[in-house]
Design a binder for these strands. Sequence first.
DNA 1: GATGCCAACTAGTCGTGTAC
DNA 2: GTACACGACTAGTTGGCATC
Length: 701
Amino acid sequence: MSKKKQDRSVSSVNVENENTENQNGKGSTFVVTVVNDSIQGMHEWTEEETNLLKQAVEADGGQFDWDVIASAVPSKDINQVKAYVLSMQQPDNQANQSANIIKAPIEIWTDLAQKLTSEDDKAASVCLPQEEVYAVQTELREVIADQQNKLNKLVSSLRSIKKIVKKTKRQNRRKLAEQNAKIDTLISLLASNAVPNSSSLSPVCKSNEKDDVGKGKGKNVPSTSRSNAAGKDNNVQSLLGKHNSSTPEHKHILPLITVSGPTDMELSPYSLVPIGQSPNIMLTRQQYNDAYYRGKNIRRFAVRLAEKIFGLDVLSQSTVSGQQTGLEKLDVDKLSAIRVEVMARFMANGTLDEREAKWKECLLSVGKRCQVLRSGRALKPELLNPSSSCSDPETLALVPITNASEENTAAQSISTTQANVTLEVDKSLNVAQTPPQINLVPLGGSPSVLIQKEDLSEAVKRGKKATFLALRLAEKVFGYDVMLGSTITGREGTERLDNDKLMAIREEIVNRFARDQPIELQEAIWKKCLYSISTKCKVLRAQKQNLGGIIYDDDYNEMKVGGDLDLLANVTCPENQREIHRAIMGHVSQQAGDMVQQEGNMVAQEGDMVQQEGNMVPQEGDIVAQEAMVTQEDDMVSQEGDIVAQADDDIEATRNHITEDEVAMEHEQEVTATIQIDQSNGLCEQHIQVGELVEQESDYV
DNA sequence: GATGCCAACTAGTCGTGTAC
DNA sequence: GTACACGACTAGTTGGCATC
């Protein structure tokens, strides 16, 4: 290390501003000054001068008497002596300075900051040349600017990415809305078919038709389907065409409950499904699923199907064989369809003898149901229980079906064998009178939400609590298949349950359980009901996800597995639910017939109105036509009022036909609900037995 | 087996502050 | 003034468990 370098690296100290304490290293403040060598006039130190200075410092004993020390080196002035002595006391300064040259700017400043903030007063002597400081500052500015640019670019990129994500989200929402609109359009197009054509409704025909479309061979296609343009059919096929059964087995027995994908539009409960492959005998999917879920076993399933296909009024006026005087015979074709359906469901692997035995039990149950309906009593569960089935099957004269392809010739077989079977079935049953009426009644006073009278009665019977009744009504109104794909709010990929129907259920619940209660309590009850419905939907979804199909190998032929309930659906007609119901059931009571006829007139008038509106569009300002429309609207309102009144009469008629037991049970339920509500409100301090209260009221009456 | 309850998770809503 | 971001809050869904 040369002395010149030492001198350059060591800056002199401004001694004018320093006192003795500072020079002794005891000062609390320090001053760093950068002084040029030229100004200070520093000179090189010879070895002799250095030795002399060291000896003087040692002799000073740390007192730093600069006058004495400087006198030892007469060739140097006192300032030069001070600077040199201090430089000798910091031997590592030179190394640090040299290291600073290759350090990064930030490191230089970090080291400097550490030294400046150090409690060691020796740091006070650290000095940097100004040109180095400026250089470091320049470098720092460049680095900061560079980092700032990079940061700006990063922020810009993030913003652009965010915009892209938002744009994608909007596009997805738009696409989803468009798809929903397409589905709605298809539904409305299908609904325009109104009463379904048998060919267009049958899954068999549908799959055949799809094959024809795919092969370009259009033959024997129903006019109703074709008349709506091939494009629509193609769209429909694209939506519905997942159920093409190509295997020979499926040609004989179509799986009514199949696994289907989310693109199926047959989620509608009003979609029609054929019973027993018969294109003329159909149920809505909601009806079929209800029979399916409530069936539990082959006999119950058969009875449920019979109830829905024949209708309770027909059952109550008929017997299986028609041998009883004054009673009609149940339609053979419909019985045949039910037979094929239940056999396909429960006895697919059974022998012919087993099938005959089972069908005989089913007919017994159906016949028993007819008898019970005539007598006005509820069907006892044991009547449909296999364990209590036909006590002596051998007494029934059965003609076994010899044809192996039973399902395909079931109608013919039934026609030849059923006479014997049904005759014996009817013989085992008694005959009674007074059939009940069948009607659609508004739910919760809502004219747009109709429910079969017997369904409502059944729901009321089973719904002893508000939540139970809500569940039963939801099952009736929505159907299982709709519920399993829906939630209350329609979030997370599920459909939203129809709010009008929910409100109708709510009104029914409130009227029955909290009619005179504060709105807060009504809301609380309804909240619990919604909770129950939501849970039910969840359970159904879980069943759908966990179970893939139906298992028949149960000893008792119980439906052990719910499976996927997405049934084949050919026509969706939600707006014409009652029309479809009328077409399916094939019978309505006179009152219901009048009501539907009035509705038909209304629909016709609505069609005329639409046509008139179309004519009015190019003729704006045609007040006369508008007045005519108003007049027609008034007529429609009047007719609607008549229909509502008719519906009220139906309800009244329904109530008149409810048995005394049902009335008593319903009354007891209402009393129970009142007690529960009173107890919850603190209005009823003592726990009162329902029976006691009813008894007391009876005594009072 | 059906139903209710609870905790965890998730999505939507609302209010507030900030940047353009 | 508008759009956006962020956090707090609310409500719904879901899985698991308990109860009837």
